[in-house]
Amino acid sequence: MSQQPFQYEAPQSLAELWSTLDLGQDGTRFLAGGTDLLVKYKRKQLSVTRLVDIKNIPDLQGVWLDAALGLRIGALTTLTDLAAHPLVNEHVPVLAAAASKMASAQVRNRATVGGNLCNAAPSADLAPPLLVLQARIKTLSAAGERELPLRHFFAGPGLSTLRPGELVSEVILPLPEGNTRAVYLKQGLRQAMDIAMVGVAVKLKLSGSLCEEAAIALGAVSPVPLRAESAEQYLKGRKLDAQSIAEGADLAAKEASPISDVRASALYRSQLVAALLKQGLQQCAGILTEGEN
């Protein structure tokens, strides 16, 4: 590749990882699926002097249910495994659906949950559904572990609040209560293999057509994936009908601060937020009214 090649290491355990020095140095990067990192490296958008491959560390893998915390998803879980995992499909099907809409089969076979979040793209497809699911992020570093809500994880386009040498080990999801439904709607220019022009996740807790609780998250319309709080406030306690849905969608669109880029114009993105959100709210509401509730 004609750049000064980096040094490659592949620790087999956390112990081995922490025994290596200076993980926090500039140019030292963790390698997960590599589907973001290698593309950026090849395009010379990222300097890498040392690459620490964390794929072989068993502690970062797997999906399991924790009675106290909820669903715990190892950061190195691939999108393919996430989409197919029985626990994910049972408890948070919206996440499985979001994962299966991403990239291509080949990329999903490599790309990881942690990589999608750490890459911190405003358009990252897992971010909106995880935000409405109230995900918490568990991090590890030589100094110990931390836990923080996902909404405090993103700091800007391509930036997270991870500290030097710190990695994401898990995503923890409280199990959604009964009567909640969630959807993730993503719009690209193609129906597959596309980065979202806009992504919206909606989670509603309903009692009949009354919205007891609403969580709404938007992707690709602001520097970081975003909870649309004023729309959530507005919908809370309201009866869901055409008018409240339209109003809620418009409020959310106002919270977005999209930019124009090669994928879409800012104006269109704002309109798309409202349109997708309307669909999302209708779907959530519709599913429930049709369902057993």
């Binding site: 220019l189 193609r190 597959a192």
Partner: peptide, 8 residues
């Protein structure tokens, strides 16, 4: 630059 995929 989006060539259409098999899905499209």
């Amino acid at each position: 630059y989006r060539l259409l995929t098999a899905v499209d």
